[in-house]
Amino acid sequence: MNKSRRVLDKHAGSLSCALGLVVIIGLYALRQPLILSPFGIASLANVSVALALAAVGQTAVLLVAGLDLSIGAEITLVNCFAATTMSAGAFGIAWVVAASLLIGLAMGFLNGVVVAYGRVEPLIATFCTSFIFAGAALIILPRPGGSIPDGFAGALTGSWGPLPFSLVLLAGVVALVWLPVFTSRLGRYIVAVGDDASSARLSGLPLQRVELASYMLAGFFAAVAALFLAAETTSGDPSIGGIYTLNSLAAAVLGGVALTGGRGTVLGPILGSFVLSIILNALGVFNVSAFWQDFIEGLVLMVVLGLGGLRVLRADSWLALLRQ
């Protein structure tokens, strides 16, 4: 395989998502030209950013050949915590933001310990912890409520001319946290462990700590997503996170991340999130009945997650398939 072909292959997910994004926004604009106004762009960005953050977190775990089914519940718990504790004023906001991020890291830590040191299958481990997190959220906030100070809400959801603050937040978190991790030794180890765990062990890489770190990254990004959702809705909701678990998985796969680990880019899952969010958002705008929305959403997710299976079909031997 030559060089340009290889680069194309690596970024196939990102490129197809970028193309898809242009097409979808184009179709959207034909029906609803307002979508290209600053207000329209901000609203599209706002519906996409939370999923993008969750997808980046999911990607960190998928790269290490893991799976995080607790991302939605992590978002819910932090969202409820922020909505019940945040008060107006710089201090009231700052400590809640810091505590929220710490809670996110702690939840990721729990997942990571159970998976990496407890040797529990990621699917089972994170499914179980998702009930712990969702249950804790219900204890804090049994029904939608709480409040978020206007200052915090405005800081995350306003816009600066055509540039929505939500995009700035996403770009900032990715540039300051995810990109440095991805290009550091930790990022290389995450990819390596996901690519071939046994080679990683023989090469002396700290396998368990790398796994732990990836789940903590997922928890961190989930917490950021939760804070953004709190700002967007200016309240808390103990059912707000549910959809993000499966959608983050679908967005990552759409953006070219391999479910089997070791393959993925920074940009791909983010673009995938935008495509997926806008499609789902458009269903509502185009007057598709709410009953059909779930049906179509499930169908879209199944097709997207099915894309991950295409790679498996390329395997040369049945033994390789059996082991996956």
Binding site: S184, R185, R188, V191, A192, D195, D196, S198, S199, A200, L202, S203, G204, L205, G262, R263
Partner: peptide, 19 residues
Amino acid sequence: SLFPSLSVAENILIGREPR
């Protein structure tokens, strides 16, 4: 003990990356 998705250079210096 190699990583199929990583490049040749990345494989050779895995765990000893110059920083």
